[in-house]
């Protein structure tokens, strides 16, 4: 059984439905990329998994989220609290706002160990230093006593990762963990996350808008568009043979090495606002191959590949179509 199974998850904020029957699953030791542009519902999915929807006035309207056999949709808040941090950890986009400016970063990692692993102050400190070394933080003992403002963005994000690891979680949800960082630092952080998954058998849900990061780091990928699943499957198969026109277009938005000038065109139009979602397939107004049924019928997921890739498209691209 998968560590995390999300099935037909629908989320609404107030009366506004934002996420519509999204499904994916994640195994231990696996990195799943959740990809989409802004407004696709990626961050909302992360909040739903963390049980944080009430903070933004949202709720799960239907579907099932099962984590290691626990049904998260029915979990009381008190039990959720023991789950968060200890078994599921969140790394957010902006390390600057995840850290308390008036505490040393060491104290913040220590605190995470003490709360989640019940360690003594001394043991917590030893563990923090150990975690910091694993994350290749140079001079860990010195950095332990620093305040967040004394550290660079990349170093702060490593501290946030150390805090996430302090509870020894089974699942890490990383919501755009490198967006605010420089490319060289991004590469380092992504490498660290991938190494952690391999060494510790963690499951990592990597939320990103960058197909380059997905290609580099993920085993499987799930593409979202306007609150719905578009395509999901193994990274190699999806990149080699995208079946959903949106997946193909999204990959095509990133310049390849040696790409001919003028061949980068982007996707016409823009992601619709939640109040103006079109009927049928939500991608059809931007889709080059939209047919009449795309305008009226919502596509259901169908397995399009021996690898198990699923595309939510009435007219999935043929293998030779690429």
């Amino acid at each position: 059984m998968s560590l995390l199974t999300v099935q037909d998850l629908s989320v609404a904020i107030g009366l506004l439905p934002l996420l519509d029957r999204v499904s994916f699953s994640l195994e231990r030791g696996e990195v799943l990329g959740l990809v989409g542009e802004s407004g696709s519902g990626k961050s909302l999915t992360a909040m739903a998994l963390m049980g944080l929807l009430p903070l933004i006035g949202g709720r799960i309207t239907s579907g099932r989220v099962s984590f290691d056999g626990i049904d998260l949709t029915r979990l009381p808040e008190a039990e959720y609290r023991t789950l968060r941090g200890q078994r599921i950890a969140l790394i957010s986009q902006n390390p600057m706002t995840s850290l308390d400016p008036i505490l040393t970063v060491g104290a913040q990692i220590d605190q995470a160990s003490r709360i989640h692993a019940g360690l003594s102050p001394k043991a917590a400190r030893a563990r923090s230093l150990d975690l910091m070394r694993q994350l290749r933080i140079p001079e860990a003992a010195a950095v332990h006593g620093h305040y967040p403002h004394q550290l660079s963005g990349g170093m702060k994000q490593r501290i946030v990762i150390a805090m996430a690891l302090a509870g020894d979680p089974d699942l890490i949800i990383a919501d755009e963990p490198t967006t605010a960082l420089d490319v060289t630092i991004q590469a380092q952080i992504i490498q660290i996350l991938c190494d952690l998954v391999a060494e510790r058998g963690l499951a990592l849900l990597l939320i990103t808008h960058d197909m380059g990061v997905v290609a580099q780091a993920c085993h499987r990928v799930s593409v979202l568009y306007a609150g719905r699943g578009a395509e999901t499957g193994p990274v190699r198969d999806i990149f080699a043979r995208p079946r959903h026109p949106y997946t193909k277009a999204l990959i095509g938005c990133i310049p390849q090495e040696g790409q001919a000038p003028g061949s980068l065109v982007g996707i016409p139009g823009m992601v619709p606002a939640a109040l103006a979602y079109p009927k049928g397939c939500r991608y059809h107004p931007r889709c080059a191959i939209a047919a009449p049924d795309c305008r009226t019928d919502v596509p259901t997921g169908s397995i399009v590949d021996a690898s198990g890739a699923v595309a939510f498209c009435h007219h999935p691209l043929e293998a030779g179509h690429v």
Partner: peptide, 15 residues
């Protein structure tokens, strides 16, 4: 450090 959108050409990131 620049990741290509191609899983067959993953980069080795040196620390």
């Amino acid at each position: 450090s620049a990741f290509l959108p191609d899983p067959e050409r993953r980069k080795t990131v040196t620390a």
